[in-house]
Amino acid sequence: MGDQTFLGPGKTVNTNQKFTVVTQFHTNNNQTSGTLSEIRRLYVQNGKVIANSKTNIPGLGTFDSITDSFCNAQKQAFGDTNSFEKLGGLQQMGASFDKGMVLVMSIWDDHEAQMLWLDSDYPLDKDPSTPGVSRGPCPTSSGKPTDVESQSPDATVVFSNIKFGPIGSTY
């Protein structure tokens, strides 16, 4: 969030090379029976563990993981409705995990927002200097599904070596 030097071609996590994403779900007591309190992301590339970048958005504070405090600060800084908190935040998310979840990954395009929410200026009706609007270097004219589908009809992605286990065991 705000660090456009971290993830991309030739950047700290170089997307031109293979890398591993490690997502850790921490609880308040560091046990599987605890309440979900933090979601932390790490990257591994060329044998090196890379910590997630820190937020760099005025008025947001400094965060490098997802916590209820981060979610609340992000919603306030961006002027968004805080539906996550209203729905119970990380505690409720953890309770949902306890009921069972299915991991789903895919390659896709976005007919609604043209993936601009990921790496461009979005929403389009806001000034790019507004906190949270400038999300990456892609032009707002990019990401049109008709372009993506016609120019890359055989696009593929490889998800491999999927692992789960105790924290620290899946690198």
Rank of each mutant, 00 (worst) to 15 (best):
D110P: 11
V104M: 04
S83L: 04
A73C: 07
K18Y: 04
P128F: 09
G2E: 02
V13R: 09
S37T: 11
Q17K: 15
I57K: 07
S141A: 14
D68I: 02
L118A: 12
F25N: 00
D109P: 01
I66C: 09
G132M: 03
K48I: 09
E38Y: 03
L90R: 07
R135Q: 11
F19K: 12
F63E: 08
K54H: 14
T140D: 02
S83C: 02
F159D: 03
S96Q: 15
K144Y: 09
N82Q: 07
T146P: 01
N28H: 06
N14F: 13
I50W: 15
Q74M: 06
T12I: 09
C71W: 06
V133A: 06
I66M: 09
I50K: 10
T55N: 09
K54Y: 15
Q24W: 02
S33P: 00
D119I: 01
I39V: 15
S152Q: 13
T156W: 08
S37I: 05
P123S: 06
I162E: 04
W117S: 01
M1V: 08
F164P: 00
A113D: 11
A113V: 05
G168E: 07
N16M: 11
N16V: 00
L90T: 07
W108G: 00
N29P: 03
V104C: 01
S150Q: 15
W108V: 01
E85A: 13
N30A: 09
P153N: 13
V102T: 10
I39C: 02
L116D: 03
L103N: 06
L116A: 04
P131N: 10
N72P: 01
R40A: 13
M115N: 11
V13H: 12
